[in-house]
Design a binder for these strands. Structure first.
Length: 191
DNA sequence: AACCCGCCCAACCGCCTGTGG
DNA sequence: TCCACAGGCGGTTGGGCGGGT
């Protein structure tokens, strides 16, 4: 059954898609004053036309003050690989061992970076086993960088976060702003 | 300069689990 | 014990962006 699943905001028009600055501020403010928890009623009380799930996700993955954004360090990558080997796709479990990192971020990182490397490595070893030409084409393929990502790790590609300027994403459009700004704004509002 | 393509990431979706009545 | 609901989690997707042609 699960009548209206997790969003019993059913008759209210529920907003979806990217969060606006106003919504972020409302959420930050509300949580600063009332704390987290009971996300559905939080969304209602705060006046956000969002589902509780959406608010929770936004808070945990982006707005929380202790969220670290940007460059995954080589140490972190090794840890991720280690833990993934141990637990598989238990992203939230893995995230608990990487302070400030979210399961979503780790999941994305794994899929876009590490998995790619592993695939390339598999292809390469496949080729190797079928062709079996020793050291063939070591010069031209990038894939040979990652025969075994575990022990050949070197920061794959200048980990390319165009918006990353140290701690927080720099402003790129009206929906992207510096989190420091946001927090200072909410502090002002709090007074 | 314009177009195409692949990468990256924020956010959504659906399922499962926990909990309280 | 059952049911309804909220929270948590993993998988997936859509859109923006940058690089290549």
């Amino acid at each position: 059954m699960k009548k209206h699943s997790s969003n019993s905001l059913m008759d209210v028009d529920v907003r979806k898609g990217p969060w606006t600055m106003e919504e972020d501020l409302i959420l930050i403010n509300y949580i600063a004053n009332h704390g987290e928890g009971v996300w559905n009623s939080l969304a209602r009380s705060a006046g956000l036309k969002r589902t509780g799930k959406s608010c929770r996700l936004r808070w945990l993955n982006y707005l929380r003050p202790d969220v670290r954004r940007g460059n995954i360090t080589p140490e972190e990558q090794l840890l991720i690989m280690e833990l993934h080997a141990k637990w598989g796709n238990r992203w939230s479990k893995i995230a608990k061992h990487l302070p400030g990192r979210t399961d979503n971020e780790i999941k994305n990182y794994w899929r876009t970076r590490i998995q790619k490397h592993i695939k390339q490595a598999e292809n390469f070893s496949g080729q190797k086993s079928s062709a079996h030409t020793d050291q063939a084409t070591t010069s031209s393929t990038q894939t040979c960088n990652a025969i075994n990502p575990m022990d050949t790790y070197s920061p794959p590609y200048n980990v390319n976060f165009p918006n990353f300027s140290g701690q927080f994403p720099a402003e790129t459009n009206e929906n992207m702003w510096n989190m420091e700004d946001l927090w200072s704004m909410q502090l002002l509002n709090n007074d």
